[in-house]
Nucleic acid binder design. Structure first.
Lengths: 241, 241
DNA sequence: GACAACTGTGTCCTACGGATACTGTTTCCG
DNA sequence: CGGAAACAGTATCCGTAGGACACAGTTGTC
């Protein structure tokens, strides 16, 4: 399941970056990588990632399972193609609102979150060490371009970009059933039952503070970016001193 | 793979919270949930989560695959048991350094990260809507207790706790092979090749800024907590005004 | 027109999670 | 004290998964 070697990575790179040499000799391919990936994405959107199997994707296309292996060396490559298709082309810098890094990066987060909400399986599949496709790299490029203005160091900027992506991931895919957004009803019942062991959590259950509909995405984003601004201010202050 | 119903959740709850009524009639069980979970954790630590199958866990214990199903209704429950075993008992509040929320929550993050580093499969398995076991709930309780001091609202506190957990997750499981910590060598080669499409990323490749060994965990934590302090300060300022 | 290259198919294999029926053991109760 | 119920671990079977491999049919090239 986990691609752990170079040969696999090379294959995926060739696939995603259009480096697969198209042959000229044999019969014309009826299928295409795009059609396959699209069918897989549609399936994952509709029935979840677990429903995506070679069998099923092929069936949705009215082909045999093994025919897919002419376009994709394995399921890992299919998933990689799904990711780059689903994540889509990033916006350009001038499409973003504002002229400074903060509103721009806020918009970047918002747009990324929208994309991920449309494909709820993406958070699970974009974890760990991978080779990013061109579109996904485009999103990263955009964030890097936006954050260049901050004056942070290169590792800091990339840490921040990674952090924001992680934040989007963390503020998604949470149960909706429950009185409080941070706990599902099974957990709530358990907390009431074991109030002695978890007094703080127990007391928080009855709070009537307005639960944010986005599970704290905006709140967390504000906290992070405030921290960044503070850091910038500190450094520019030191520069002047 | 995804437990999507209540009956399953109920079963897992009973398992994790010790609510399974032990029978008294038949032959004495030779195995135990603890032994099974421990074997599974050891296996996952050594060979990765993908190596954990009922077959393999049972073989490591010199038992049949089906014998495990006497202690666990399915693999989901096994994984749930693995999580609560691997995450371990949280520290107590007075074991943490400092007396204010900031050093305490910093220590909380550090300890959680240590635990997760010891079990690199945990990030993948602790995503999404689940029922937490008692030990994992203990970690959450601790963070909630620490953050109570901040004066943030309940949803804000829990968002923050979730955020910090997400931050630990995001700053783990990254490739180590590469000149820069934020990109692996495959990606780096691609960026050099497509320098026109990704100019910002391309230019960052040659930077010689010191790559942090923790992939920006401390940096990100500082940013987040600075943001929190700023928020607290703003509100207390408004209170005075 | 032969041949090489290629696409899509059919068959087969291994491994997985899990259901079910079974054998053997323990304990309760009449 | 002895049978019967309740249990533990086993053996066998099933459906589905990813994938290897050999094949039939199609296409371009020499």
């Amino acid at each position: 399941m986990v691609t752990d070697s170079d040969t696999t990575a090379d294959g995926t790179i060739q696939l995603l970056w259009g480096l697969r040499e198209g042959p000229t000799r044999g019969p014309k391919p009826v299928l295409s990588l795009e059609r396959i990936a699209q069918a897989a994405v549609d399936l994952a959107d509709a029935e979840g990632l677990a429903a995506v199997s070679m069998q099923r994707v092929a069936a949705d296309l009215d082909f045999t399972k093994m025919s897919l292996y002419r376009y994709v060396t394995g399921k890992d490559e299919l998933v990689a193609a799904m990711i780059d298709l689903a994540v889509g082309e990033p916006p350009t810098l001038d499409e973003l609102p504002g002229t400074t890094w903060r509103p721009r990066i806020e918009a970047w987060v918002r747009l990324l979150a929208q994309t991920w909400e449309a494909h709820p399986w993406l958070p699970w599949v974009t974890m760990g060490d991978r080779v990013m496709g061109p579109k996904e790299t485009g999103w990263t490029e955009l964030s890097a371009a936006i954050l260049a203005e901050t004056g942070l160091t290169v590792p800091e900027r990339m840490s921040l970009a990674r952090m924001l992506g992680g934040h989007v991931r963390a503020t998604m895919s949470v149960s909706t059933a429950g009185t409080q957004p941070w706990v599902n009803r099974h957990q709530a019942a358990l907390l009431r039952e074991h109030a002695d062991r978890f007094p703080t959590l127990r007391s928080m259950l009855d709070g009537d503070a307005a639960p944010p509909p986005d599970y704290g995405r905006d709140f967390g984003l504000r906290v992070i970016l405030d921290g960044v601004e503070l850091l910038i201010a500190e450094r520019s202050g030191r520069h002047r001193a």
